[in-house]
Structures are given as structure tokens and as C-alpha cells.
Design a binder for these strands. Structure first.
Lengths: 122, 122
DNA sequence: CCAATTGGGTTGCATAACGCAAGTGAGTTG
DNA sequence: CAACTCACTTGCGTTATGCAACCCAATTGG
């Protein structure tokens, strides 16, 4: 287990759903992976790396492993070779779409004052 | 500037609103502070500390400063003494309610399998 | 059929963020 | 006016992040 991101090692801070959602998704990268999959449908490791935020490869591999173990994403061909094997959202991951929509809407409405270059997407 | 959390030091990773929202709120504590204010209206420093997730005091002070500098929260009496001075949401902070609602909804529908003790709130 | 390339990672190490415990200092209470 | 809160700050060890380099199997080209 080289760099384990095991769902069984997940430490839940409380019984609150919001807190638990943040235990899983409360970092700067996980929801960006979900965003890319919502936009593109499927995405390979290299394609994730080409997104404008430029995630580091170790972080990317770690998050893909974690999101997979949580059932949020899955490989398009789970038995296939590593090469050319893309990721896609599971229904659980697809269910995050409203969260991203609200977050994007909030940012567009409330962050332009601090970040004027921000654009419209989704 | 003992432990500066300045909005001018904010590093935006890209022009994407979702990415920018995560630049601001993409950690395990900021949205929990917003949650407490949505639930309780106002909250003092000590009250935040009593939430079940038990945030460390330095992190709490840092996030309160950051959220204040971004205009997401404010002090109820900005000119008053530090003591008994509570925080509340600004309209920008209040606008995060749908984000938290969707996150909570998602967690309740999709995380119970990993975290059976999770309860219903909001 | 073999050398070079590409895709999908892992590893090492420096830096930054987090977490805990203890301390500080102004305002309040007894 | 001494003890006690409250709202923080500080120090320091641990964990996470970020960067660059490396690795190996599967193609691809000659």
C-alpha cells in the first residue's frame, strides 16, 4: 500500500452531514476532478493534468484513488491495462453536480470583486 | 501582521469560478464556520470552539480573519471590545446557504454507507 | 524486432498547513 | 483587587502539499 488513501482510514469529525461531506471533499482538488468529469464525461490521467489549475501528479493519483474507494468515480474499464484507461463519475459522483453548480454560481456572484478575471462556465 | 490571512495574498489557480470558490472555501473548516452561523445567526469565538468538530484555536482565528477579509462574515460590533463580540454572515456569506444545503443533501444521500452514524440536520 | 516514446503513475525531498498545548493580556466578576 | 473569562497568539511537532525526477509497461517507428 504505497500511499494509502483508504476509505476505512477516513476520520469523521462528527455526525453532521456537512462536516462529513467536507471530510471527503473539503480540499482544493477533489471537486476539481469532479468538475472535469462533469464537463468532459470521461478523462484520463494526462487530461486531468492538463486542466488549468495544474495538479501535481502525486496529489492527482492520491485523489483518484480516494474518490474511487468512496465510489464517487470509477475506471471506464476496470479490468483493462492502466494505459488509455479513463475515469468517469458514478451516480454518486454525478449527484455532486448541484453542489458544483451552486458553488460556481456563488463564486460568480460574490468573488468577482476579489478576482475580476474570473469567467463564466458550466 | 502576526499570522496574516490577507485577501490580497490570495492565489487564484485559474479563472474558473468553481476553482476560485475552492481557492477560498476549499478546506475542512471555512464552510463549518458558515454552517454554524447559518444555524445560530451569530456566534462568538468560544461558541465556535464548542461545535462538535473542535477546531483548533489558531485555525479558528485564522479562518475568521480570512472570511472577514473576504466579506463573507463580519463582527456584530466592529468597533466594540474584543470580548463578547460575535460574528455573523454578510449577504455574501448568507448566499452560501444553497451550497451548504446541496452539500448536506449529497452527504445524506451518498455517505451513509461509509458513515452510518451520520444524522439529519439543516 | 528492437529503440524511442508515451501514458500512468511512484518516490524523495523541501515547504506550507494543520493540530495541540501552553501562554498572554484586556475586560469582568466576586 | 485578585481570580477568572474570553479572545486570541505562539511554539513546535506532525501531516499534507508541491515540485522534480524517476520508473515501468505498452505502443509506435524504422
Amino acid at each position: 500500500m504505497a500511499a494509502g488513501s483508504d476509505v476505512d482510514g477516513m476520520a469523521w469529525r462528527s455526525v453532521c452531514p456537512i462536516s462529513s461531506g467536507l471530510d471527503v471533499l473539503g480540499d482544493k482538488w477533489s471537486l476539481l476532478i469532479v468538475r472535469d468529469l462533469i464537463i468532459h464525461g470521461t478523462r484520463t490521467y494526462s487530461e486531468f493534468r492538463e486542466s488549468p489549475e495544474h495538479v501535481a501528479t502525486n496529489i492527482l493519483a492520491n485523489r483518484l484513488r480516494l474518490l474511487t474507494s468512496l465510489g464517487i468515480i470509477e475506471r471506464t474499464d476496470p479490468d483493462g491495462a492502466a494505459r488509455n484507461n479513463a475515469y468517469r463519475l458514478t451516480p454518486t459522483g454525478e449527484a455532486l453536480r448541484p453542489v458544483l453548480e451552486e458553488l460556481g454560481r456563488w463564486a460568480q456572484g460574490n468573488l468577482k470583486v476579489h478576482h475580476p478575471d474570473m469567467v463564466e462556465v458550466l
